[in-house]
Design a protein around this nucleic acid. Sequence first.
DNA 1: CGTTGGTGCTTCAATTTCGAACAAGCTTAC
DNA 2: GTAAGCTTGTTCGAAATTGAAGCACCAACG
Lengths: 166, 166
Amino acid sequence: MCEGSFEGRWLSPEVNSVWNRFLTVTHRLEQRIDRRLQDFHGITHTQYEILVRLADAEDQAMRMGELAGRIVTAKSAVTYQVGKLGEMDLVERFKCEADSRGTWVKLTGAGRERLEQAAPCILSLVRELFLDSINCDQALELTKLLETWSANLDDHDAADRARSPE
Amino acid sequence: MCEGSFEGRWLSPEVNSVWNRFLTVTHRLEQRIDRRLQDFHGITHTQYEILVRLADAEDQAMRMGELAGRIVTAKSAVTYQVGKLGEMDLVERFKCEADSRGTWVKLTGAGRERLEQAAPCILSLVRELFLDSINCDQALELTKLLETWSANLDDHDAADRARSPE
DNA sequence: CGTTGGTGCTTCAATTTCGAACAAGCTTAC
DNA sequence: GTAAGCTTGTTCGAAATTGAAGCACCAACG
């Protein structure tokens, strides 16, 4: 990237340290958020993410599969967590009319309430740790970076799909 | 602390989407790396991280606690994974002379070999997905961002430590 | 029709992670 | 010295995550 084509087996030290820092920072961020959610709101980060996606969705409802796609985890994990959220009455399941294999998950009133309690707390943490301390230019740059990475990952996924069906 | 006075309860949409993308991208990156490590080299990402840290360490050895600090996980998880790596003979444990509560973990020859096999594969993936597609300025900017976040997290940890001992 | 292939979700066993409780050993302050 | 309090690392049980296998259903082509 900076030092052009790069035949060595190892990354140059500076580059390696960028990647290490990246891993460390992301882990620490998630840990922080997870802890705060559990301490103050009794849900895990995965559960919170589910509530957020549902709240954003049309009709506050979503299909299991799409949910699994958005938060990035195995489908079986979503089944499990939606089960948990169901026990807490934060979420409800409905059979899907159009496709009877399918399941809709819908935010309940209690679910919406819980989210509205938790969200300001978490969002202020996100601002504090992640966003407040960066300026406009940096935010713009970050957005670009994220888009780049996203596109790279998409390419990679596409390449995989192209390879395996053979 | 969480529900205090607070009028912008929600992040603005653009800002929110930065955070969401960030979460998504980091998860996808880790997933990719994990899969490649398991498919081609028979170790998980956590195990790989342990090997990397040990290789970087003086004498290719490290104390359990420091290891847990570097890769960001619970101490018990490190005990577990070092156990696994021990079974595979990639790592060895030694009692610590200076402090007999302590344990040293040391990379074995086989461990070093395994790492040298895996590293180019993983690093090229990291380059491909993460680093190649960004230019020098962006890399610089990213480094700054990571430092900022790191510092924020440090402050936060410090604030915690200051609060709890009371 | 029917049968073949693919999809959506769940179930299950295996693995991993976490936090709390613990044992053992250091350290400090009297 | 020794008692009180930290630190280090492990153990334990509970929770979460994963991938594979399975089940029920759709779609589409003969």
